[in-house]
Design a protein around this nucleic acid. Structure first.
Length: 224
DNA sequence: ATCCCGAGGG
DNA sequence: CCCTCTGGAT
């Protein structure tokens, strides 16, 4: 027997998120689909802040896929050394740029299948590019969305694809992209992985995790 | 399941 | 010190 799904005030949570973060948007710096693709590949296990520092110089020197294909892995790695996983990312970006140049005329393809076939591009990165560069509704599930949606009980899974299905099932298609950004903003500003600021969170009355997280604190501070 | 992996924060 | 950051490939 599966446990009964928790009853969640989905609509209320989504309304509050929209009020709390009316200007939520992608915080990676980019000027075109190619730059967004590279920035998103670079963003794995790295802060957007650090990615923006690295891409500022990178895109100045190498604005197009054609500018990368003659670089060695070591040369590109040196450009992105300020980021974690830089060797994998260097190899993947070089391969991706070669494919973009040889198969797509230096353009970023707009189909999910073509994007996910690029080295270093999985479902999350494809969703980010589709939604932010091509206005295709998509809900990318990254570390923030995974954590926050589970805490709010908007989802109940540690599997990103499963979480994506659960959230998109609850949210109108036109709201997918904005919802993605609002959840990320909330994850960064309030619902942090380590020290979530439940005490100042407007979602606390509707948050499954927050209620169970705050209680031990209030008990111990009262309890002696 | 494991590897990759620097910078920033607590 | 340890944990986390818009993951993906093997």
């Amino acid at each position: 027997m599966k446990p009964k799904p928790k009853r969640v005030a989905t609509k209320k949570i989504l309304e509050l998120l929209a009020e709390m973060y009316p200007d939520a948007h992608c915080e990676l710096d980019f000027r075109n689909p190619f730059e967004l693709l590279i920035a998103t590949i670079l963003s794995a296990q790295s802060t957007d802040r650090q990615v923006n520092i690295v891409t500022k110089g990178l895109f100045e020197r190498y604005p197009q896929p054609e500018n990368y294909i003659d670089l060695t892995e070591e040369e590109l790695a040196k450009e992105i050394r300020g980021l974690g996983l830089y060797r994998n990312k260097s190899r993947n970006i070089l391969q991706t740029c070669k494919i973009l140049t040889s198969q797509y005329g230096g353009r970023v393809p707009e189909s999910r299948a073509a994007l996910e076939a690029l080295p270093g591009v999985g479902r999350k990165t494809a969703n980010v590019v589709l939604s932010n560069a091509f206005d295709v509704p998509a809900l990318a599930v990254d570390t923030h969305v995974l954590r926050v949606s589970n805490r709010l009980a908007l989802a109940d899974s540690e599997n990103p694809l499963e979480v994506e299905k659960q959230i998109t099932r609850r949210v109108p298609r036109k709201e997918w992209t904005d919802t993605h950004h609002r959840i990320i903003w909330h994850g960064r500003r309030v619902c942090a992985a380590r020290n979530p600021k439940c005490e100042v969170c407007d979602l606390l009355p509707y948050c499954w995790y927050g209620k169970n997280h705050m209680e031990p604190l209030t008990k111990s501070s009262h309890g002696k």
